[in-house]
Write a protein that binds this DNA or RNA. Structure first.
Length: 496
RNA sequence: GGGCCGGUAGCUCAGGUGGUAGAGCACGGCACUUUUAAUGCUGGGGUCGCGGGUUCGAAUCCCGCCCGGCUCACCA
């Protein structure tokens, strides 16, 4: 092997991960005429297309990351992966240019461009015979373990790119998330909805009950809040004549983390003038079924414990009936003390200061909601729970809303929007009480100019993606979930 | 924020009762022209999360802290 590049007698500066070793290889690649971190490599084909359009002997040009290298001496097999698929590479001493450089200076993890031809190996594996190749980027750090993948959840979240490279299922899941977002937009666009963008920085955070993140806008010398919901701005647009509109973007809530909560989360909110709660119910049902069909290809979604049947029709049941079913048909006739005792006997910890409606809601949240696996519209919620919804025509103690529950999680609330500015003011003032956030006067002013009767709803997109993919935790459907910032030496241990 | 569990090589993991740290993958060297978790031989690689303490001696026992997971509380 006289033409092989000079080998170092031993690692001059050995290290566990091979970083120094790889730096050395990089220098030698540069000496051999390869641009250390490559140049544009245009006119490539996706590996999935090469696989689908496989033709013996077809000339191909492609690029990707080397995943594994199987060195057989004068013959090398390797796996190449791009964003679409993986495909086997073959390098032969008598056929591949710069064979020895390939053999000695490339590592799993490197990015290369390849020109060659398709053939089938003896084992029947579709393969690219490399005629020419070039270095597009040298990976100075090794890939995670090839067989077990990357399991350390902290690294998976903090260095999601490694998770995506090492765990194909993760890549597939986020691809599904992308598709779901696209399908939602296309579905709504086809129905005549328009996507709008309203402020994420708001002088007061309204439209929901949650602690906001606070920030400071220096130029205006004013405190600002990251929005907890876009609702009050979207309704201003209803007043302005956007009859069908939606916003699909982030909300921020300064609350705890859990398997179903991330401080920034993606919400679809939409409004349709001249419609109502029933219209929203029909719309959300059609939308979710359509998205599931296109993204999952089935209405049986999730896995194992999280298996859910999205087949129509979906159950619709009133809040009251669910309560009666769980707490007994005489629940609403019980005296407060008896109710408290009964709730306790159901296994709940009841705060002695709670009102009847708070106790009732505790029963709903702790004992009922999480048991509703298949899609369920819970309707006619108590008025005080939803200050922005219209009261039911036949009973003003309940509002004309639905809460769509799937997989035991709140996925989408929807309602007939309250458009009476006088009533709206009363409800907001009742809700805000003494210390909570002030009433949004600008919003009420807009209502006074006339907001059409409308249906509106919100869909928690992260939770919807959890349902569709069977993900156990919201962190698995958010590319970069919130983690505590870390400034370890680990993070500063840079290769120089 | 509370409770419980965890952190050992780049990754995946072993390391009863305290005695100076191992394997596989990855990386270097050698062999091999159809392998695919390639194989065989061989070599290098560790502040055992961080800081204190106990001890002749700590990955191991004690205390504090950091980060993560689960869970409870707030919230969608």
């Amino acid at each position: 092997m006289t033409e092989s590049p000079a080998q170092p007698a031993a690692s001059p500066c050995p290290d566990a991960g091979g970083g120094e070793q790889r730096l050395l290889k990089l220098q030698r690649l540069a000496a051999a005429g390869f641009a250390p971190f490559g140049q544009a490599f245009p006119d490539t084909r996706l590996l999935t297309d090469l696989r689908a359009g496989f033709q013996e002997g077809l000339g191909v040009r492609t690029a990707g990351r080397l995943m594994t290298i199987r060195d057989m001496g004068k013959s090398i097999f390797a796996d190449l992966r791009d964003g679409s698929d993986r495909l086997q590479l073959y390098a032969g001493k008598s056929q591949t240019a710069e064979f020895d450089t390939f053999k000695h200076l490339l590592d799993a993890g490197d990015l290369i461009g390849v020109e060659g031809e398709l053939f089938t190996t003896r084992m029947g594996e579709p393969t690219i015979r490399i005629l020419k190749w070039t270095l597009l980027a040298k990976a100075l750090r090794p890939l995670p373990e090839k067989w077990h993948g990357l399991k350390d959840v902290e690294i998976r979240y903090r260095q999601r790119y490694l998770d995506l490279v090492a765990n194909p299922d993760v890549r597939r899941l986020f691809d599904q998330r992308s598709q779901a977002l696209r399908e939602i937009r296309e579905f709504l666009w086809a129905k005549g909805f328009r996507e709008v963008e309203t402020p994420m920085m708001q002088p007061q955070a309204g439209g929901a009950a949650a602690r906001p993140f606070k920030t400071r806008y220096t130029a205006l010398n004013a405190d600002m809040f990251l929005r907890i919901a876009p609702e009050l701005y979207l309704k201003r647009l209803l007043v302005g004549g956007f009859d069908k509109l939606f916003e699909l973007n982030r909300n921020f809530r300064n609350e705890g983390l859990s398997k179903t909560h991330n401080p920034e989360f993606t919400m679809l909110e939409l409004y349709q003038a001249w419609s109502d709660r029933k219209g929203m119910q029909a719309l959300v049902q059609e939308m979710i079924v359509s998205v599931a069909q296109k993204v999952v290809g089935s209405l049986q979604v999730g896995r194992d414990e999280n298996r859910i049947d999205l087949a129509l029709p979906w159950r619709e049941v009133t809040y009251r009936d669910l309560i009666l079913e769980k707490a007994g048909s005489d629940w609403y006739d019980l005296a407060p003390d008896a109710a408290r005792a009964h709730a306790t006997s159901l296994g709940l910890a009841i705060d002695p200061t709670w009102s009847m409606s708070q106790i009732t809601h505790e029963i709903y949240e702790k004992l009922i909601e999480r048991t509703l696996k298949n899609p369920t519209f819970v309707t006619r919620l108590p008025r005080e729970l939803v200050p922005l919804a219209k009261a039911c025509a036949d009973d003003d103690s309940v509002v004309d809303v639905f809460e769509l529950v799937i997989g035991g999680k709140e996925i989408a609330p929807g309602y007939s929007e309250l458009n009476d500015p006088v009533e709206q003011r009363k409800r907001l003032e009742a809700q805000s009480g003494a210390e909570a956030q002030k009433v949004d006067e600008e919003f009420l002013l807009a209502l006074e100019h006339g907001m059409p009767p409308a249906g509106g709803m919100g869909i928690g997109i992260d939770r919807l993606v959890m349902i569709l993919t069977g993900a156990e935790t919201i962190r698995d459907v958010i590319l970069f979930p919130q983690l505590k910032p870390k400034t370890t030496e680990e993070a500063q241990k840079v290769i120089r």
